[in-house]
Amino acid sequence: MLALQESGAGADSLAGAQRWLIDGQNARTPAWGPTPGAEPTMLHTSIALLALSRTPGALSANTMRQTAEWLLERIEPGIHVERSTTVEEYDVPYADGDIQAVFQNSLPHFAGPLALSAILSTGVVDPLQQKVFDSVNAIMDTQLEGGHWELPRSPMRPSVWALWPFVSALSSARSAILSTPRAKAALLFPGCAIVQSEDVAQDLTRRLLIQNALFDWIRSRRVVLALWLVAAVTTGVPVTLLLAGRFSVKDFLTALIFPVLLMVFQVIWERRAARAGAGG
């Protein structure tokens, strides 16, 4: 079905495959197994969702969201395969002269990257989530020297099967999250991220976060800071006059009455604010 979509096949050519896939969904969960009605797996659910999400109207937005969330719940960042579908084994017959021989082959399946591609391809799940970012970072962190990833049974053997699922997942993440190919994204909390292009200073995110944190702190404590400023001024003037010999000790202590009253008022204010916050 994916091949027909890529080659520009018409709706009639895809209708049978679409019906077959939808009918083969597991009856208990919004997911698919290797055969119709079988226990669902991440691998088969991902491929089915990839195919159906590319056909307008094949699945409702609610069904796509449920399937994508089912996959997102099961993704483990850094774990690229699932135990039940790690390798597909089959025999390839071939002629060796007059002898008919059989080559035993195994095809690795990377359910994790495929699931990430499927989730992001639907467009119905918010990509600004910690598990999505962790999965992308884990894919980049586990890339081996030479640009490929580890095969389940042949760790150091380069293979196209250990390349395209990961590149596809990274491409899907880039399209869903980043504004330009070399941009960077910093997740603040679910649903909110700072996306920084390559044309700005590298410390922009850090400076922006510090600046906003400082402003938020000042805004939330503006009354207390104003009281402290008044107290500092009313205390600093008598101290300066005392050191200059223009104030006696008695005058100095008298001048401190107002700052002390301000301090008492500030303590009462903070306690009332704390009680009001606890009550809310």
Rank of each mutant, 00 (worst) to 15 (best):
residue 260 V to C: 07
residue 22 I to E: 06
residue 12 D to W: 13
residue 177 I to Y: 13
residue 127 P to A: 11
residue 5 Q to L: 15
residue 116 L to F: 08
residue 223 V to S: 09
residue 198 E to P: 00
residue 112 G to R: 02
residue 45 T to N: 03
residue 116 L to D: 05
residue 248 S to Q: 04
residue 166 F to K: 00
residue 39 E to R: 02
residue 252 F to R: 04
residue 82 E to M: 03
residue 236 G to F: 15
residue 129 Q to F: 12
residue 255 A to E: 14
residue 267 V to R: 07
residue 90 Y to T: 01
residue 195 V to D: 11
residue 280 G to I: 09
residue 105 N to G: 01
residue 13 S to M: 10
residue 213 A to T: 08
residue 136 V to N: 02
residue 44 H to C: 03
residue 260 V to W: 15
residue 220 S to K: 13
residue 9 A to V: 06
residue 141 D to C: 00
residue 34 P to R: 02
residue 79 I to G: 02
residue 195 V to A: 08
residue 219 R to D: 15
residue 93 P to M: 13
residue 60 S to P: 00
residue 186 A to L: 12
residue 57 G to S: 01
residue 87 V to I: 12
residue 196 Q to W: 02
residue 105 N to C: 09
residue 166 F to Q: 05
residue 100 Q to H: 05
residue 40 P to G: 08
residue 182 R to M: 13
residue 205 T to D: 13
residue 207 R to K: 13
residue 56 P to G: 01
residue 2 L to T: 03
residue 201 A to K: 08
residue 204 L to F: 15
residue 237 V to C: 04
residue 173 A to W: 15
residue 222 R to C: 14
residue 64 M to E: 09
residue 98 D to I: 03
residue 2 L to G: 09
residue 200 V to M: 12
residue 172 S to K: 07
residue 18 Q to H: 03
residue 154 S to D: 14
residue 14 L to Q: 06
residue 72 L to M: 07
residue 259 P to T: 06
residue 20 W to S: 07
residue 125 V to S: 10
residue 157 R to K: 13
residue 40 P to L: 13
residue 4 L to A: 13
residue 70 W to E: 07
residue 179 S to R: 10
residue 189 F to C: 06
residue 231 A to K: 09
residue 112 G to M: 06
residue 207 R to A: 12
residue 142 T to R: 08
residue 238 P to M: 14
residue 85 T to P: 01
residue 38 A to D: 14
residue 55 T to A: 03
residue 18 Q to Y: 04
